[in-house]
Simulated assay, not measured.
Amino acid sequence: MKKTVFSVAATVALTGVLATTVSAEEYKINKGDTLWSISQKYDVSVSDLKSWNDLNSNLIYPSQSLTVNNETATTTTKSSNNSTYTVKSGDTLYAISQKFNITVDQLMAWNNLSSTLIHPGDQFKVDGQAAKTSAPSNNSSSSNSSSNTSTATQTSTTQDTGNDVVKEFTAEATAYTANCTGCSGVTATGIDLNANPDQKVIAVDPNVIPLGSKVHVEGYGVAIAGDTGGAINGNRIDVFMPNREDALNFGRKSVKVQVLAD
């Protein structure tokens, strides 16, 4: 579309693990494929695809072969009771918690976090055994800090959808349409907005909201984070509207954004 596609998070790095080697399944890329569409087809994550294929960006080419089923990812075992994970660009606490089958609350407790804000290079304890010896802080300052942060943990729920809220923050929102000079109408994740004008889609910074996430936007409703844009950086979103006049009338406003659990 009119938007510039930026690369999502780099590959993950886990220290202190052992893995069983299993032959991988290959997929030959067709015209129109995206990493996101391939990840949906094989029920894997974009991060896994990039890790298995040593990709540093989302750029792929027709006829290129990708490893799409690397069983080593599901057969890894920790070599110690203090395994750690090094945060990469684009990671969120929720994504890390899902990878290691733990909760955001556990990650925050084990690593003495009072906020869900993380940075590339941070190292976190991700060993499930730590739950037996580590307890969340119950002091009032920690409790108040957690309740006042811009990001919510899995324990909160949006009343509008009934879904668990992974992350919550205030974003600056604008609107766009698929009908403009030079626009293809196809989003960064392959959604044809001209063919699906009723689809609720927002453009996001993938480092803030992973592509493919389900989100709830105040005043817009439940949508898919399915597009990117050159001006969409940080806590900025662009909501898709099929009607150009509606998009213009939307203007620029601050809205509450909730990233929802699947």
Rank of each mutant, 00 (worst) to 15 (best):
L107F: 14
G230H: 13
E71N: 10
V12L: 10
A223L: 03
N243L: 15
N207K: 01
S115F: 12
I29H: 00
I60G: 13
E172Q: 00
A225L: 15
V126W: 08
G251W: 04
T187A: 14
S150E: 09
A73S: 10
G182T: 06
F240N: 09
L211K: 08
A247K: 10
D54S: 13
A131T: 06
R236G: 02
T92P: 10
A261L: 15
S213N: 11
D91A: 05
A109Y: 01
S146K: 06
S142R: 02
I118P: 06
K132D: 06
G230C: 10
K99P: 01
S57M: 12
V201T: 06
T21S: 03
V204F: 06
T84V: 14
S115W: 07
D105V: 15
F250N: 08
L49A: 14
T189E: 05
Y220E: 02
T153E: 00
L14W: 12
L113A: 05
Y94D: 11
S254I: 15
D238M: 09
L107K: 03
S114L: 08
F169Q: 04
C180M: 03
K3W: 09
T103P: 04
D227S: 11
N243C: 14
A10I: 09
A19Y: 11
T11L: 05
V17K: 14
G212D: 14
A19V: 04
V68D: 11
G90F: 01
S37A: 11
